[in-house]
């Protein structure tokens, strides 16, 4: 096979599932049986993976730099919370559909306005949009509970899966199932021609205009899809924790997703998995060891990653694999 044919085959088959891709799911299922006392934190990890995955779609693939992604997470969370508190709507699946739709709408409208800017301007505007929603939720105290938060009540999933605040086994399975579904969607999008054109926008937006791509339309589309997925993550967060506060719309939450992608690697699908697990375990362990000092440890890890592993942990892994392949060839 010639070099060109090999490259064509690689391009034609790159969407195929590789054996290694089973690993995170096998681990997640194994954790359910092996670590029952950790399912609460496990559920939070799964939600963070989903949130970071939605961010990866815009940041890692389309190159949209945003610090306001919690706008969509929070919209989803409040959609579920408001339905439950004011309309007695406790059915979880339809609740998440509403959460996704509400977040998608916010993504579509804000994206349509904001995505004509880029770089630092876009960063500030995404953050400002999130802050506006935060203030809106704070101001509408009688609806959202304001600073005190909002309790969320949920029926058993499909009438079968009950949420228990003690074991978290129902929550964990529910979150895992949803993460899997959403992951399949993201994976399809990333490997589609549309996804390929997003990497083109990330790599050189000037050239994308020159090859005739409707750049802004593509960006708004992916931003809306990503917002919907972040909305599902937020809705899920509200459902499994049975309580939300304004912090679902906070800068800290938006930054957490960003840190997850820095740790795990962006534009690689699995960076969100590795990063979220590492982040939550670090937080858990460091907070146990140094209750008032744990963020110092996190900061130190971030500095090390930024210095020595710019592509995150999955990036390090990919580099090592590449080096190994090259050595095997020569």
């Amino acid at each position: 096979m010639t070099v060109a044919e090999a490259a064509a085959t690689a391009l034609a088959t790159r969407h195929r599932v590789r054996p290694l891709e089973a690993l995170p799911w096998v681990l997640a299922v194994a954790a359910f049986f092996a670590l029952p006392e950790y399912l609460a934190v496990g559920t939070q990890i799964l939600i963070l993976v989903l949130f970071a995955l939605s961010l990866d779609l815009v940041l890692g693939y389309a190159g949209i730099v945003t610090l306001g992604h919690a706008a969509f997470f929070g919209t989803g969370a409040y959609a579920v919370g408001l339905l439950s508190a004011h309309l007695d709507w406790h059915e979880p699946i339809t609740g998440l559909i509403v959460a996704a739709a509400a977040a998608a709408l916010v993504g579509l409208v804000s994206g349509w306005v904001l995505l004509r800017t880029h770089g630092l301007t876009l960063l500030m505007l995404t953050m400002a949009t999130m802050t506006l929603l935060h203030e809106l939720a704070n101001e509408q105290e009688n609806l959202t509970g304001g600073f005190d938060g909002l309790p969320v009540e949920i029926d058993p999933v499909l009438g079968l899966l009950r949420f228990s605040p003690l074991t978290y086994s129902g929550q964990y399975l529910y979150a895992l199932g949803l993460l899997f579904l959403m992951f399949l969607v993201v994976r399809r999008v990333v490997y589609s021609p549309f996804g390929h054109s997003l990497t083109g926008i990330r790599e050189n937006i000037l050239r994308m205009h020159a090859v005739g791509a409707p750049v802004r339309q593509r960006l708004v589309t992916v931003y809306t899809i990503s917002a919907a997925i972040a909305g599902v993550a937020g809705g899920l967060f509200a459902q499994v924790n049975a309580y939300i506060t304004l912090d679902v719309l906070s800068l800290e939450r938006a930054a957490t997703a960003l840190i997850v992608l820095i740790l795990g690697g962006h534009g690689r699908l699995y960076g969100a998995f590795v990063g979220a697990a590492l982040y939550m375990i670090l937080e858990d362990e460091l907070a146990k060891e140094f209750p008032e000092f744990w963020q110092f440890g996190l900061g130190l890890v971030l500095v090390l990653i930024a210095l020595f592993a710019r592509e995150g942990l999955t990036g390090l892994f990919a580099q090592a694999a590449e080096r190994f392949r090259k050595r095997a060839r020569s």
Binding site: L11, A12, T13, R14, H15, R188, V189, Y191, S192, P193, F194, G195, H196, S197, G200, M208, V211, G212, A213, T221
Partner: peptide, 18 residues
């Protein structure tokens, strides 16, 4: 990237690029 734009393939969101 360029050929996909010309042929209109680039709007495909679901089926793999391959």
């Amino acid at each position: 990237v360029a050929v996909a734009e010309r042929t209109g393939a680039a709007t495909g969101l679901w089926r793999p690029a391959g």
